[in-house]
Design a protein around this nucleic acid. Structure first.
Lengths: 193, 193
DNA sequence: GGGGTTATGGAACGTTTGTTCCGTAATTAA
DNA sequence: TTAATTACGGAACAAACGTTCCATAACCCC
């Protein structure tokens, strides 16, 4: 019936994630997108709507691809403390020694956009809920299996751990000493002792 | 010798803080600044240089005015845990029930600008150093006065507490349940038990 | 192999961007 | 009062912004 697209939507979304993640919403121009996504202006607008819409879809893509991995690790954890330490390490390795650390796209979105864009806020909140709930469930499971003290409150502890992860995401935006980062991990995971 | 300025530099800087704090660097336009600072375009550029320069000066102003208060509270604390709880409460009260929560201007600056602007990064790092050091010293002082267990490591604990404050600053960008926030505070301050 | 439909590339749109320029106003030392 | 200097308001600037439009190209069903 009609001409077929010369690109994969998923691939282009991944590329859009790459741009918006690194530079944020306002600092990424339409020209940037056209130049780096390998898709012409008209096809971009035809497929994704306007810039804001593309940004929202990129946020969903980021959440699915990047955060999905962390969720999976937590949900399948056998040793929770070890798993959380591994996640901290993953996060650190992503940004350390990077001249332009990207941090977390959802944290960047929260600070740049969430206050003035309810759709962005909803995505950020959804992500928070997922991670906090997964962490809470993992704590409960560990308690049920007698691997964790039962006087630890699952909900507030999960919230505090999630909160610490967010904090580290910001900290990594300005390069940090490894010793400081290790200290934060050590103390945060002490919540599970 | 020459005409006198019709405005106080400090007042204008405070107003600039208000704008950049709420909207960030890129989303605040030169027109926004002219419209809200009560200073003509030419006087703005004459006094503060370009937009980026004004932003950097606004960051310093924010640090002096807002964070200076927290520093003072920590440095003069008699009951550290109580003081930290008070600071958490101050932070929460600023943003809760606000339709457009501003969060912390330095956190916003870190995520939006620090990766690509070394001067912004330096200001953020300076602020981190101040707060972390103040917290570390307060812990040591409390330990010396036998108000705190001596097996608590001052440096890493201070880093973790600072980290939790940053995390909460981001969390408040999307409105939160008070119970969740209280849980984070409770668990974070457990580091001092 | 048309005919209907969508995709594409590129030019073009009107706004908004950050910044500069200039004529005039205000200030004070001489 | 004059001369020298700086501040001010507003027009003006080129560049970049996000978006739209259109002629052409590619595709599939009939």
């Amino acid at each position: 019936m009609a001409r077929t697209k010369q690109f994969e939507v998923e691939n282009v979304l991944d590329a859009a994630v790459g741009l918006f993640w690194k530079k944020g919403y306002h600092a990424t121009s339409a020209n940037d997108l056209v130049a780096h996504l390998g898709v012409s202006r008209s096809s971009l607008y035809d497929t994704f709507g306007d810039k804001r819409n593309l940004y929202l879809q990129a946020l969903h893509q980021y959440r699915k691809r990047i955060i999905g991995r962390h969720l999976y690790l937590i949900e399948t954890a056998t040793d929770l403390k070890e798993t959380l330490e591994a996640i901290f390490t993953l996060i650190i390795e992503q940004d350390i020694d990077d001249f332009h650390p990207r941090g977390c796209m959802l944290v960047n979105a929260a600070t740049e956009m969430a206050a003035v864009d309810e759709d962005v806020a909803a995505i950020v909140r959804g992500n928070q809920w997922d991670l906090q709930k997964a962490c809470e469930m993992a704590i409960k499971k560990a308690q049920y299996q007698n691997e964790l003290r039962t006087d630890i409150d699952p909900k507030s502890t999960a919230a505090a751990i999630y909160n610490a992860i967010i904090g580290m995401r910001v900290a990594l935006k300005t390069e940090q000493e490894q010793a400081t980062l290790d200290g934060i991990i050590l103390q945060t995971l002490r919540l599970l002792d």
